[in-house]
Nucleic acid binder design. Structure first.
Length: 512
DNA sequence: TTCCGACAGTGGGGTCGCAAT
DNA sequence: ATTGCGACCCCACTATCGGAA
């Protein structure tokens, strides 16, 4: 298949807002593709590179290259060039990659160049990611969409399913079963604002401690253990403690779901930053493990001794989990049966926070394991803090926010009356808010460099956040975690904003 | 007809590893 | 040694489509 065809369809998909039309366009494209094209076509359409990291960003994509007059690039040829490009390493590699990019761009027509640029910079934005591709694939092959979706979750890969489907048709879906050693997309949680709300929505449920670490899926088949992240990357080699822990368990073949965290000598969880830094360390794992040892804490089991447990109710999966994993390696939990247990659940949440954890997850006892879904049967409850801060500047938005001031720079008051930047946020804004603040902030503008508009510090915003974390970037040495706008406080003046001092006092222990 | 679940989009901060300076 | 960049962890929230109620 020619790249120009793909670029053309991508543009058409982006031009329509109707999902049914997007699906139809993709289905038509898939019907014309070879099975071997599809593992490339699908990630390209989602704005993803099958190679993963390539080491090319804005800096390497520098100057424009004259386009080719006629389309000659094929999808597979382009992929081969990018694969070769990704394998360049060592001294001078950046220059060599830049040369290869220029060569590729020179072979592309103007339309193909636009598409490739979007692909390489992650700006494809056509409103069709994997979910729409699944629908299109179902339409193209006559397979039921629900079965395609399930196969994708179990395969952990849309590309693999697409190739099999286009080569062999709907019967190929049979081959995608839960398999030890092949990661599946993990089940995710939605948020609830309180324990009472969560319990009310779920009825019979369990309340589990929410640990602030790295989600892991652990597969063991005899002596072989593999550890995968939420995005299904294999991190086995970085976590020898997890492999050792999995080998201690009584079962020979299983898949467990849990969180990796680090506890200090006193048994309190280390901060997310410390745990994540440890898990990210690849070069000298023994040294990193010595400084910050981690422990797996499991909360679900997907498979044991060849039995697929995904469709069992959570209560039954937990029974299997308790049989396989000793209590000290399982997450703390409270069994609840309904609204009468809310006071117990609230005490459990308070206790979890006192122990240094993030909050709780309330889980319906009847629910199956919905791989890859942000299902309504797992509800996380975390405390939310709020502050009144001052808008110091705003950044021009991208994509659908082009032409709108979007990302706010947030400042707290200092003792001398100046303002200290604590971080940024673009979350929590409706289109009306965006329109209003674009107008209002431009009235207050003192400088616009085309990216950041600095303003007189006059507008007060109420900001919600999940906690304070250390920062080397911001002057106070701290920044807000997951800051989002609640509302503009037009009733407040900058002198009424919160101070750095009160913020630090509210979160003791964040700074040494 | 209205409601609501699922999806896509818009980016945030931190840390690590690699190459360039 | 330090700096810049990209990848990959954690994540909240809104708008929209289209099927369910």
């Amino acid at each position: 298949m020619l790249l120009s065809r793909l670029a053309q369809v991508s543009q058409e998909v982006a031009a329509t807002s109707a999902r049914s039309r997007k699906t139809a366009l993709l289905a038509e494209l898939f019907r014309d593709a070879d099975a071997d094209d599809v593992p490339i076509v699908i990630p390209y359409l989602a704005g993803r590179l099958p190679q993963g990291r390539l080491g090319i960003g804005w800096k390497v994509l520098g100057r424009p290259v004259p386009p080719a007059p006629e389309p000659t690039l094929t999808v597979r040829g382009t992929d081969a060039r990018l694969t070769a490009l990704g394998q360049v390493s060592g001294a001078g590699s950046q220059a060599e990659r830049a040369r290869l990019v220029e060569e590729l761009m020179g072979a592309a027509t103007a339309g193909e160049q636009r598409f490739l640029l979007g692909l390489l910079t992650g700006e494809v934005r056509q409103g069709a990611l994997d979910a729409v591709a699944v629908e299109g694939l179902a339409q193209a092959t006559g397979a039921p969409a629900a079965e395609v979706r399930r196969a994708v979750m179990l395969a952990g890969s849309l590309q693999a399913v697409a190739r099999a489907l286009l080569a062999d048709g709907p019967p190929a879906l049979e081959r995608f079963r839960l398999t030890v050693g092949r990661p599946v997309q993990p089940m995710l949680a939605q948020s609830a604002s309180s324990v009472a709300e969560a319990v009310g929505r779920l009825g019979g449920c369990a309340v589990e401690e929410k640990l602030d670490g790295i989600r892991v899926q652990v597969h063991r088949d005899g002596d072989t253990v593999r550890v995968y992240t939420r995005t299904l990357d294999d991190i086995t080699d970085r976590l020898p403690e997890v492999t050792a822990a999995a080998r201690e368990l009584a079962g020979e073949r299983f898949i467990l779901d849990g969180e990796v965290v680090s506890f200090d000598a006193a048994g309190r969880p280390r901060s997310f930053q410390e745990t994540a830094g440890r898990v990210g360390s690849r070069v000298d794992v023994p040294a990193a493990a010595g400084a910050v040892p981690v422990s797996p804490v499991f909360f679900d089991v997907l498979s044991v001794d060849g039995r697929d447990l995904l469709d069992l109710p959570f209560a039954e999966r937990h029974t299997e989990l308790a049989r396989l994993v000793p209590g000290e390696m399982r997450v703390r939990r409270l069994a609840a049966t309904g609204p009468q247990d809310v006071p117990d659940a609230e005490r459990f949440l308070a206790d979890s926070l006192a122990r240094g954890h993030e909050g709780v997850v309330v889980k319906g006892l009847d629910a199956p394991y919905s791989a890859g879904r942000r299902g309504a049967s797992w509800l996380k409850v975390k405390p939310v803090h709020t502050l009144d801060l001052v808008v110091l500047a705003a950044e021009w938005g991208h994509g659908r926010r082009t032409g709108r001031l979007s990302n706010l720079h947030l400042g707290a008051r200092a003792d001398d009356g100046s303002f200290v930047m604590l971080g940024k946020t673009f979350k929590g804004m409706t289109d009306a808010t965006l329109a209003w603040q674009t107008e209002r902030l431009q009235e207050l503008a003192v400088r616009d460099d085309g990216h950041v508009v600095r303003v007189r510090p006059e507008l007060v915003v109420e900001i919600a956040y999940d906690g304070l974390q250390r920062s080397t970037r911001y002057p106070a040495g701290v920044t807000l975690r997951f800051a989002r706008l609640v509302r503009y406080r037009e009733d407040k003046r900058p002198e009424d904003a919160d101070t750095v001092g009160t913020l630090l006092a509210a979160h003791p222990g964040v700074l040494p």
